[in-house]
């Protein structure tokens, strides 16, 4: 009984609990059940074994740059499976260029091109990679299925990755999940009928201080509330400009009282005072 209590305590929100309970009862709950698609290739018109895939000029440039980093041996080239999968995802991220955005911090690094977060890897692309690197198809399948950052099914234009690991969860990640689910009419792991949205639940994305947060394609949207989440989704759908980073006006990850420590430059001595070394 104690174990069961602990169980329900961890899975607080009712909807999530109901669904997970069902999955537990069916005995088929796996990590994959929460992501889009399982660990088996499902033949579909947009992702078929009969398709062919060609790398575009941009990808070819990146591939040449990547392969130069590895030894020109069978094993060496096999090491390039991961970057090549990512290059394919960048190539197929068609939405990135269409998103109008502004960084919450004007000094932040811009996103001139897709980092691959909104793309996917079709089966044909895995075969193309295997042929390019001289390894077997299975070698590529193994890597592509091992890492959750490779999307093996066609996703919506916007891929919402909702962090539900402990810090986000205690800050209300499941409220955000329900907001998104009810606003878009999809559940976790599903793509909306219009093909615009895909929602997946992921583990920690490393923005715990600004929890709860979601990642849409390559961009983090932090400090979410149900209200600003709805606004964010509407803005994205309408093609309006969105702000990347904290949604509540917070700067970086400052606490509510602003900077309270380390307000002055460090006074020294510095650990590597090279000029003093030179003089002595």
């Amino acid at each position: 009984m104690l174990r069961r209590l602990a169980h329900s305590a961890v899975r607080l929100p009712a909807l999530a609990q109901q669904r997970t309970t069902l999955q537990w009862v069916a005995g088929i709950r796996t990590t994959s059940a929460r992501l889009a698609g399982g660990f088996i290739h499902v033949e579909s018109p947009e992702n078929s074994v009969h398709d062919t895939f060609t790398f575009d000029a941009e990808s070819e440039k990146e591939i040449a740059f990547t392969l130069a980093k590895y030894p020109d041996t069978k094993q060496g080239k096999q090491s390039a499976i991961m970057p090549l999968l990512w290059i394919v995802q960048q190539q197929l991220d068609k939405a990135h260029a269409t998103i109008k955005y502004k960084q919450a911090d004007e000094n932040a690094t811009p996103f001139p091109k897709s980092q691959g977060g909104g793309g996917w890897v079709p089966l044909a692309a895995m075969h193309a990679i295997a042929d390019r690197l001289g390894c077997s198809h299975m070698d590529v399948y193994e890597v592509a299925t091992f890492f959750t950052m490779y999307n093996r099914n066609k996703l919506g234009k916007f891929h919402i990755q909702l962090c539900a690991t402990t810090p986000c969860m205690v800050c209300g990640a499941y409220d955000i999940m329900h907001t998104i689910e009810s606003h878009l009419g999809i559940h976790v792991g599903e793509t909306s009928k219009c093909g615009t949205w895909t929602l997946t639940e992921v583990e920690c994305l490393g923005a715990c201080v600004n929890a709860p947060m979601i990642q849409i394609n390559d961009m983090f949207f932090e400090d979410l509330t149900p209200e600003n989440t709805v606004k964010l989704l509407d803005d994205l759908a309408a093609g309006r400009e969105v702000v990347v980073g904290p949604q509540n006006g917070r700067k970086h990850s400052l606490g509510p009282m602003g900077r309270t420590s380390l307000t002055e430059p460090p006074s020294g001595p510095y650990c590597r005072d090279l000029s003093s070394l030179k003089s002595s």
């Binding site: 990590t31 994959s32 660990f39 088996i40 089966l123 193994e142």
Partner: peptide, 16 residues
């Protein structure tokens, strides 16, 4: 091959 990882790992051919 081994597809997937952790508790979800399976032995299979991935493409059936």
């Amino acid at each position: 091959g081994t597809v997937g990882r952790g508790n979800a790992m399976e032995i299979g051919t991935y493409v059936g």
